[in-house]
Design a protein around this nucleic acid. Structure first.
Length: 1012
RNA sequence: GCGGAUGUGGCGUAAUUGGCAGCCGCGCCAGACUUAGGAUCUGGUGCCGAAAGGCGUGGGGGUUCGAGUCCCUUCAUCCGCACCA
């Protein structure tokens, strides 16, 4: 009996479901003690996949790649005795369901439910060992209740720089009530303050109105409301976070994005910038992700420095006290400053511009402001700017330096002003060259430059400082320190750290997201009481903004906040916040919820989170590098600060599986207008569909078709044309130049060979398609690697693969494809090899149709095969090298087949070690071996080294590093003896050709190398 | 421009610490069986060469008895960031 995967896989999937095989218990669960994990007392191990957004298209073969790998690992850890948490859920709020709702009027919840059901069905077919009892959906009120709860905690917290952690806002109010606030210079200020606040005394604070107090507190809350420049996307009708914008257009949909000032909820992630950066050191994530996060955070250390603006006696508004504050990381080059540049948006621009320059400056500022982000990015190389007419005084040389405006200076970074050092900064250099400004060299490079300083800036942080007064002769790094010291001493500025990271905009003007649990009283935002959660997403008549441009939630009827009885606002109805949370809100803490998914008292219990702690292995795509993975780290640190969880990082280890690209298939159609008859009205013709096989098309393109081939094609084409158009008596012209390549459905192509019958049935117009094939009658398609997408007809769904080859085969094959992290095109060319392997494995346990397991002792070589495999597989799994384990299984089965091994002593452990990879067949074989329980909680066999040791070693004997022949010696034979024996060999003498060896290297049990 | 990753047969890939380059699979070639198939099994298959032998891990150089692996340099492809002072 051949292995019947269809029946067997279904059977075990049902068994797992019926027996709740993968249900995981926390030690506090009553069932824990009697569960497998409880009995074995295994340590907790948490394997998590980044959860999917359930899109309408369903899964394609790329999605399961990571899931299969993590499932193998989870199953392996169970076999090793761990209590494994391996959950799955859905990131079910999001734009596509809402866009669909706008088009069809269908509630996004319905779409989402349907899509989730389809995902579930697809996932189940692949045999994953998820504990579905812990499933979460971010759009479920029982889940988003706690997302809202965390938002309230953020609102009620500020970041205390002294204790370096988030604290309740009450400790800040206490400070205001006891010592007041010194304003912008106060070192309790943190992060990305959009509006600087003046200082105030204790008395002033106490006299502030509630509204003013709240306004002040908004400067400190970790969730706060402020007027912020946002990325507004008109087509999507919402703001987007920085990482949702790529190259000036929205990541989803590719719509233009513009900058707009809006009142917005933001999260003060910048307060955590330093910790987000430093803690990267201690987590085992890929270097590329860490680097992407470092880039995104963009820490740079330097100093601020004030340039006095020269008093212009003639003009009003200039009181002689104006300063331009710049930020620089290169204070060592301060003597090289030859001008100062302001961002067009800089507040001093209007103040300092001289009357003579006024018109020009105003024109320029308008021009710069109206350039969209996209334009600005598109022509980075274009240098624009204008002179203000004003001069600043160099703080050390006291010389005049002109003040310019240039849009290469960003308003949002640093102070929005730079001290320009053209000799040592390429942007300043380009600007100076363009406008003919001075270039002063102040750094002597350590080695002579290839190009002179006249051609490009010398930017490296190395060399010796020259022409620089008190800095002369210092090495660059020393000079930076010295310069900062002097700047601080003379009160010209302060050592300072800047981050590229901006606060995260948290509001979205959309419907399908978590409502922000806030209401407004007298324009002041208040958060809901925790007991009032969840704030349920209300029903609306349309999923569109209101006529007045308010978000969809403003459409909800009678949706007002009425406080709980006993509260001062009784009987009133207040407006809720109408924007909803962004897609990443729910995913920023979901890993915690899985630990305690049904808790209705807390977001996660202390016991549960102290037991599971954080994710041991996190699997997901690299596209979340600066989005989700940064936010989930931020929330984790925040919850840690509040003492709610014991960990500062969400995941100890992170693996990014590679992307599976599509392999598109092409057919080559002869040009439809290659011929015509007497009457040149093509409406009267029916044109045949004639396709040239790949090699003929290539020859055609290279114009190397031979006469016979050309004749054949012509004859076929003309005959077909005549057949279709009997009214045309004569075909006059025939133009055979090039074919058009058409995408064809990859599901009817096998190893580039087109299934011609299926192709004819694929589309009505191809019913009578004619194929001009290769000599063997095959039609060979062309192929190209492209993104997997519906429109390219290259989507391969896992269902089709499971249907044809089975889930085990799909699992093994996806792993066999290559290293997990590598991106590769999906290509089923090799799947038959894996399929054959599974059948071979099955046959090992059978003789013909009957089960054939022997109970006699295994031979030495059988044991060696087994233990060698155990060792390899263990090593492979531990280093996530799943592709190599598949080949090792193949080697093992090939060897055992050769040995005609049917011994239980071998076949039983073999079933266990292969179970994580192909669990269905493993369960069946385990059953055949007489076990009544699932193989899931069997014990992974240990490798016994004694079966692997050989008494002798077959030495490769090499001459000058080239292996010439082999010679076997006892492993214990000493080095000297090996050398002696090798030199005495007849073969050695042959290769020595009478020469005397210069040197003989013997590496015991490795190699012998003779140097001649 | 900066950063990250990857370059090995016709293809996907493999090679603990520097120690037999090409495991395993696909494809291809030959053969067996045959109910002729997209089935199964056996053997072969890096390149050049009739062979002996030579050449081979993107290119060039180096260290070493010995380099796919270490160092320098260079090229190509992919990804991320990008007037971030």
């Amino acid at each position: 009996m051949e292995y019947n995967f269809r029946e067997i896989e279904k059977k075990w999937q049902q068994y797992w479901k019926d027996n709740k095989t993968f249900k995981t218990y926390n030690p506090t669960d009553p069932e824990y003690a009697t569960s497998h994990s409880g009995r074995r007392g295994g340590a907790p191990y948490y394997v998590l996949d980044m959860f999917p957004y359930p899109s309408g298209a369903g899964l394609h073969v790329g999605h399961p790649l990571g899931y299969i790998a993590s499932d193998i690992f989870a199953r392996y850890k169970r076999l090793k005795g761990f209590n494994v948490l391996h959950p799955m859920g859905y990131d079910s709020f999001g734009l596509p369901a809402e866009q669909y709702a706008i088009q069809t009027g269908q509630h996004p919840e319905i779409t989402t439910k349907t899509n989730i059901a389809r995902y579930r069905e697809q996932l189940d077919k692949i045999g994953f060992s998820f504990d579905w009892s812990r499933e979460v959906r971010t759009s479920d009120p029982n889940y988003y209740k706690w997302t809202q709860w965390i938002f309230i905690q953020l609102f009620n917290s500020w970041y205390n720089k002294k204790t370096n952690k988030a604290e309740n806002i009450s400790t800040l109010i206490e400070l205001f009530e006891t010592i007041g606030f010194k304003g912008t210079e106060d070192d309790i200020l943190t992060g990305d303050l959009e509006i600087y606040h003046d200082g105030f005394t204790v008395n002033e604070w106490n006299d502030f109105s509630e509204a003013t107090k709240e306004q002040v507190l908004q400067q400190f809350r970790l969730a706060y409301l402020s007027d912020t420049m946002v990325n507004w996307c008109p087509q999507l009708g919402t703001v987007l976070a920085n990482e949702e914008v790529k190259d000036g257009v929205s990541e989803r949909g590719g719509y233009p994005v513009e900058r707009k000032l809006m009142k917005q909820w933001s999260l003060r992630i910048t307060a955590y910038a330093d910790r987000l950066l430093n803690d990267l050191e201690d987590i085992d994530w890929t270097e590329s992700i860490k680097e992407a996060q470092r880039n995104w955070i963009g820490k740079s250390e330097g100093t601020s420095l004030k340039f006095k603006v020269e008093n212009q006696k003639s003009k009003e508004g200039m009181d002689g006290e104006a300063f331009i504050e710049v930020f620089t990381t290169r204070p060592d080059t301060v003597f090289g400053v030859s001008f100062v540049t302001l961002a067009p948006e800089h507040e001093l621009v209007t103040k300092i511009t001289t009357p003579a320059q006024k018109k020009e400056v105003e024109e320029y500022v308008t021009f710069a402001k109206n350039r969209s982000e996209r334009e600005r990015m598109a022509d980075v190389k274009k240098i624009t700017g204008v002179f203000t007419g004003a001069y600043a005084i160099h703080p050390f040389t006291c010389k005049q330096v002109p003040v310019w405006i240039g849009d290469y200076v960003l308003a949002g970074y640093g102070t929005g002003a730079v001290m320009a050092v053209p000799a040592h900064d390429s942007r300043d250099f380009a600007f100076a060259k363009h406008f003919g400004l001075d270039i002063l060299q102040v750094i002597l490079p350590p080695s002579p430059l290839e190009k002179g300083l006249g051609d490009e800036a010398f930017e490296a942080k190395e060399g010796t400082v020259i022409n620089s007064g008190f800095l002369d002769g210092l090495e660059v790094k020393r000079a930076i320190k010295e310069a900062i010291a002097v700047i601080e001493e003379e009160d010209l500025g302060k050592g300072k750290t800047n981050y590229r990271l901006r606060d995260a905009i948290f509001g979205r003007q959309r419907y399908w997201g978590e409502p922000i649990p806030v209401y407004y009283k007298d324009g002041i935002p208040h958060v809901l009481n925790e007991s009032e959660l969840p704030l349920i997403l209300p029903e609306v008549d349309k999923y569109l903004p209101t006529e007045t441009g308010e978000p969809p939630l403003a459409r909800a009827k009678d949706w007002k906040y009425t406080p709980l009885s006993g509260s001062p606002h009784r009987g009133e109805g207040f407006d809720y916040e109408y924007s909803t949370m962004p897609g990443w809100a729910g995913s920023s803490w979901y890993y915690l919820r899985y630990m305690d998914a049904h808790n209705d008292k807390e977001f996660v219990s202390k016991e549960a989170v102290n037991y599971w702690k954080n994710v041991n292995l996190y699997m997901g795509g690299a596209e979340h590098a600066t989005g989700h993975l940064l936010y989930v780290r931020f929330w984790t640190k925040f919850l840690y600060d509040l003492g709610l969880i014991p960990v500062i990082e969400p995941a100890k280890k992170l693996i990014n599986q590679g992307m599976i690209q599509g392999m598109s298939a092409f057919v080559y159609r002869l040009p439809p207008l290659f011929m015509w008859g007497r009457d040149n009205d093509k409406e009267k013709y029916k044109l045949p569909f004639i396709f040239l096989s790949k090699s003929l098309n290539e020859k055609l393109n290279k114009k190397i078709l031979n006469l016979i081939e050309i004749e054949t094609i012509k004859t076929i084409a003309i005959n077909e044309f005549k057949k279709l158009n009997p009214h045309i008596k004569e075909v006059f012209s025939f133009d055979l130049s090039s074919c058009s390549a058409l995408h064809t459905d990859v599901n009817i192509v096998n190893n580039n060979v087109l299934d011609q019958e299926s192709f004819k049935n694929w589309r009505e117009e191809y019913k009578n398609a004619i194929f001009i094939t290769e000599e063997n009658g095959d039609y060979i398609c062309g192929s190209e690697v492209e993104k997997m997408s519906k429109s390219k007809w290259n989507v391969v769904s896992p269902d089709a693969m499971v249907e044809q080859y089975g889930a085990d085969c799909l699992r093994l094959y996806e792993m066999f494809l290559g290293p997990l992290e590598l991106s590769k095109p999906w290509n089923t060319n090799g799947i038959t090899g894996v399929s054959t392997f599974i059948r071979k494995l099955w046959r090992l346990y059978h003789n013909g149709d009957v089960v054939n397991i022997g109970n006699e002792a295994a031979t030495k070589s059988e044991l060696k095969t087994l233990h060698k495999t155990i060792k390899k597989i263990t090593e492979d799994i531990e280093r996530f090298s799943f592709n190599t384990s598949v080949s090792n299984f193949m080697i093992c089965v090939n060897e055992l087949t050769e040995q005609k091994c049917n011994k239980r002593e071998i076949l039983e452990p073999l079933a266990i070690i292969i179970a994580p990879y192909s669990p269905h067949i493993a369960e069946e074989l385990w059953n055949i071996l007489g076990h009544t329980e699932s193989i899931t909680y069997a014990a992974f066999p240990e490798c016994k080294e004694e079966y692997l040791v050989e008494s002798s070693f077959n030495y490769p004997i090499s001459f000058n590093g080239k292996t010439r022949f082999f010679q076997e010696y006892e492993r214990s034979l000493p080095k000297e003896q090996v050398e002696k024996e090798v030199l005495a060999l007849e073969q050695t003498q042959k290769y020595l050709e009478g020469k005397i060896p210069k040197k003989v290297i013997v590496v015991p049990n490795k190699i012998v190398n003779i140097v001649v």
